[in-house]
Amino acid sequence: MLKVTDLKVKYGMIEAIKGISFEVRDGEIVTMIGANGAGKTTTMHAISGLVKAAEGSIKLDDVELTKTPANKIVGMGLAQVPEGRRVFAEQTVEENLILGAYLRKDKAKMAEDMEEVYKLFPRLKERRKQLAGTLSGGEQQMLAMGRALMAKPSILLLDEPSMGLSPLLVSEIFHIIREINDKGTTILLVEQNAKRALAIADRAYVLETGSITLEGTGEELANDERVQKAYLGG
């Protein structure tokens, strides 16, 4: 479904991503773990077109994304929940969800999908007329996820959805990621919270200062000594 080959990204002279290759197959949950500053967000932004790839290719079902403008990519079935949620604070919950479906024309189906989102996140429904900026961190994360789902993506990219949330909320968010995947959406999950991420991932990659250093199934990496030492505090 998503195939990244020899991707390099530069910020000025600094090479933040140094030629990485990975793929996400249909129906999978794939996670990329790495420390702060490893280049996870840069990778996500390169896929969504928010930063330009210096070299390499990013293919979504054989369409080259590095040559596609950022605002067209979501229409091709790839949505991203960005790091730090980035909800539109001055618009209501409902307006945020409608913006998520910006390119869609099927009004009736959109209303159904909004109900689906509210079913997944009942708290959003209670707050649908409230400005997004007044929501708590956890609610904003739910809104960012709901907003991305409104695009009806076939693949969903999540950038550190657990950041800054209480353990209880983290569990809830990971549970919902599982549920979204069960309903047929492929997932690429980027996390610093390696333990949780590896637990739900089919396959995983470890990113260190712009390079992929390890890969395997979620279980393999969770049991890997190097991963345990560097990311699982053991």
Binding site: Q80, F88, Q91, E95, Y102, R147, A148
Partner: peptide
């Protein structure tokens, strides 16, 4: 309007707006 909402979105966060599919 939808365009108005997109304008308000762009005024807050252009990157996130592009992720929505808005042509900034």
């Amino acid at each position: 309007t939808k365009t108005g909402s997109a304008m308000r979105a762009c005024s807050e966060d252009k990157g996130a707006s592009m992720l929505m599919g808005i042509n900034v």
